[in-house]
Write a protein that binds this DNA or RNA. Structure first.
Length: 271
DNA sequence: CTTGTAACCTGTCTGC
DNA sequence: TGCAGACAGGTTACAA
C-alpha cells in the first residue's frame, strides 16, 4: 500500500542496510516495469557506493558516489525485501551489498518504475518537473491551497490526488484527511474558504505524520519479520472502514465509487 | 487549460 | 472445489 508514509518507511528501512555500502552486484531480472529499465543500470551501479537515500513524493531516491541517483516508484503493489529466503517470479531487481545483505524489489502488478538519472539533473526528471510541494513541507499550507485551488471546480478529493497541486497523497490519506477536516470529498476545491483550507492542510500533515510514526514505531528497522519494508498496520480513520463508526461523530462510514475509485467518508459530519 | 474515464497487470477475496 | 466477478494503495493517455 505505497503512499507517502509507506515510501518514507521503506526509504528509512533501505537506508539502514544500504547507506554508505558498496554495491557488489545489481541485477535486473526483467527489462522493464511500467517503463523500460535503463540499459546501463548494472554497469553504472556495480561497484558504486551509496552516499545517501531520500524520498520525493512517492519516489525513493538512492544516490551513489558516481553522481547517479537510482529512482524507484512502488506503483500499486511494489515493495522491497531484505535478505529474502529465495527469489520469486515477481522479484524484478536485486542488489547485493559489500556487507552480504541482499535487497530485492518485488512488484506483482508491475505498475512501479526504476530509473537512473544524473544526480545534478534530478530536477529535470520527467515526473518531478511539474510536481507540487511536499505535503509535510512548510510551503504546503492554507494560503498555498487557496492559491492553487482558485477557480477550480473539480472535487477537492481529486484535486488533492493531483500530484501537481501537492505531491505524495493517495487515496487512503486523502480520505482520512478530508474526514479529519470534516470536508465533503465532492465539494468544489475552489469553493472552500481560507479557514477550511488551513484546517485541511493541517489535517493532511497530521494524518501523514501519524502514519509515518506508526510505521517507524511498530517495526524494527522498518521491516516486518519476513524482511518486507514499508508495510505496517496503521489505524486509518475512514479508509477501508465502511459501516464502522466515524471517529468524529460515530455515524457509519460510507463508501462511494467515483471514477472507479473508492471514497470513504462520513455522510453526517462531511455532509 | 480543465475534467473525467479507461487502461496498464496480477493477485486476492467474496459469493454462488 | 471451481469459477466468475469485484476490487486493489498509482500514473498517464486521451476524449470531451
Amino acid at each position: 500500500m505505497p503512499e507517502l508514509p509507506e515510501v518514507e518507511t521503506t526509504v528509512r528501512g533501505l537506508a539502514a542496510v544500504l547507506d554508505g555500502r558498496r554495491i557488489l552486484t545489481a541485477e535486473a531480472r526483467r527489462g522493464d516495469l511500467r517503463r523500460p529499465f535503463p540499459q546501463d543500470l548494472r554497469q553504472r551501479l556495480t561497484g558504486a557506493r551509496v552516499t545517501g537515500l531520500a524520498r520525493r513524493a512517492k519516489y525513493g531516491l538512492i544516490d551513489t558516489d558516481r553522481g547517479d541517483t537510482l529512482i524507484f516508484h512502488l506503483g500499486m503493489s511494489g515493495s522491497w525485501r531484505i535478505d529474502p529466503k529465495d527469489i520469486g517470479k515477481h522479484d524484478h531487481f536485486v542488489i547485493d551489498t559489500d556487507e552480504g545483505r541482499r535487497l530485492v524489489l518485488n512488484d506483482p502488478r508491475r505498475f512501479g518504475s526504476l530509473d537512473l538519472v544524473r544526480t545534478d539533473e534530478i530536477g529535470s526528471y520527467g515526473p518531478f518537473v511539474a510536481m507540487g510541494p511536499e505535503p509535510l513541507g512548510n510551503e504546503f499550507s492554507g494560503p498555498y491551497l487557496k492559491g492553487a485551488l482558485e477557480g477550480r471546480s473539480a472535487p477537492i478529493k481529486s484535486l488533492l490526488l493531483d500530484q501537481r497541486i501537492v505531491a505524495g497523497l493517495g487515496n487512503i490519506y486523502v480520505c482520512d484527511a478530508l474526514n479529519l477536516a470534516a470536508i465533503a470529498p465532492g465539494r468544489a476545491g475552489g469553493g472552500l474558504s481560507r479557514s477550511r483550507l488551513g484546517l485541511l492542510a493541517d489535517s493532511v500533515k497530521a494524518v501523514l505524520a501519524e502514519a509515518i510514526e506508526a510505521g517507524g514505531s511498530s517495526l524494527r528497522n522498518y521491516a516486518r519479520p519476513d524482511g518486507e519494508l514499508g508495510y505496517f498496520s496503521s489505524k486509518w480513520r475512514v479508509y477501508g472502514r465502511e459501516g464502522r463508526p466515524c471517529p468524529r461523530c460515530g455515524a457509519p462510514v460510507r463508501r462511494r465509487v467515483d471514477g472507479g475509485r473508492s471514497t470513504f467518508y462520513c455522510a453526517k459530519c462531511q455532509g
